[in-house]
């Protein structure tokens, strides 16, 4: 997540100083953000994560299918219900102090899930859900009342804001597989999503010390990684975020 930088302007002497002041003022008034610093990194071990919705769906007791069989030409190691990291894992850079609400964020509702599935935002950040499916959805909050069930027709948008810090689960009455987690974290300085190979880039506005943390299914996963950001981009790919080191127990039951 990008954050605006509010630099102070120091007055100078003479015309040069005035020019500098004017230039600086124009630059500030133009709304141009401060030069963000990128934090590049990499996730590993995400293949050991398991999508809880899919894991539940493969349970025969849930009657999710009448037959489910592996395709043996697909390697057994690939036949694991690891998540689509680009949609389901959220990487955040946590600062040392609380921050205000960020710009509204869009959440796409389609295909039996939301994109992103897990989102970490600062409290007060507005989320805009857009129904990209050609049929209705009825999102609702699990365990909280600020997001009551309401029908979203095709193309409709619905807004909701997590006002307080915490973990929020959002589901759909018309699509049981849809589960979204919103984590309202007061210290979140930036957030992003990895590519399918686990690489990610976070943009932080201010230099300082940050903690990189991955979230999956509404929970923090893996060990956090501390990063000190100065005026230059930081690449911590050499110290990847390890989300998991071994396969979960569910793999015993493919």
């Amino acid at each position: 997540m990008n954050r605006r930088r509010k630099d102070a302007v120091r007055p100078g002497r003479g015309s040069a100083a005035w020019l500098g002041v004017l230039a600086g003022l124009a630059w500030v008034l133009s709304g141009h953000p401060a030069a963000a610093t990128n934090i590049r990194g990499r996730l590993v071990g995400f293949e050991h994560l398991r999508n809880p919705i899919w894991i539940a769906a493969k349970d025969p007791d849930h009657h999710g299918y009448s037959f489910r069989e592996p395709v043996t030409t697909v390697p057994a190691g690939m036949r694991k219900l690891f998540p689509a990291v680009s949609k389901e894992i959220c990487i955040v850079a946590l600062g040392t102090g609380t921050v205000g609400a960020a710009k509204p964020m869009s959440v796409r509702v389609s295909g039996g899930r939301t994109t992103p599935v897990t989102l970490v935002v600062a409290p007060g950040t507005e989320l805009r859900f857009k129904n990209s499916d050609p049929f209705d959805h009825r999102l609702y909050g699990v365990g909280f009342t600020t997001l009551a069930p309401s029908t979203m027709t095709k193309g409709a948008t619905r807004r909701w804001t997590a006002l307080e810090a915490g973990r929020y689960e959002i589901r759909d009455e018309l699509a049981p597989s849809l589960s979204m987690w919103v984590v309202a974290e007061p210290t979140v300085a930036a957030s992003g999503f990895p590519s399918s190979d686990g690489r990610f880039t976070l943009n932080v506005d201010d230099p300082g010390q940050y903690t990189l943390q991955a979230y999956f299914a509404g929970e923090a996963v893996g060990k956090p990684l501390s990063v000190v950001v100065e005026r230059r981009d930081v690449d911590v790919s050499g110290r990847p975020l390890v989300l998991a080191t071994k396969a979960p127990v569910e793999d015993n039951n493919p």
Binding site: W54, R68, P70, V71, K87, G111, T114, S132, P134, L174
Partner: peptide
């Protein structure tokens, strides 16, 4: 489905197929 970003990856039946399984499902769309 006119939206270019229309997807099906969240449904368990599709997720299973993407992970090497063949199966059925009954979806209410």
């Amino acid at each position: 489905a006119s939206d270019p970003e229309f997807e099906l990856g969240g449904y368990p039946v599709v997720a299973d197929a993407l992970h090497g399984y063949v199966r059925d499902d009954t979806l209410v769309l």
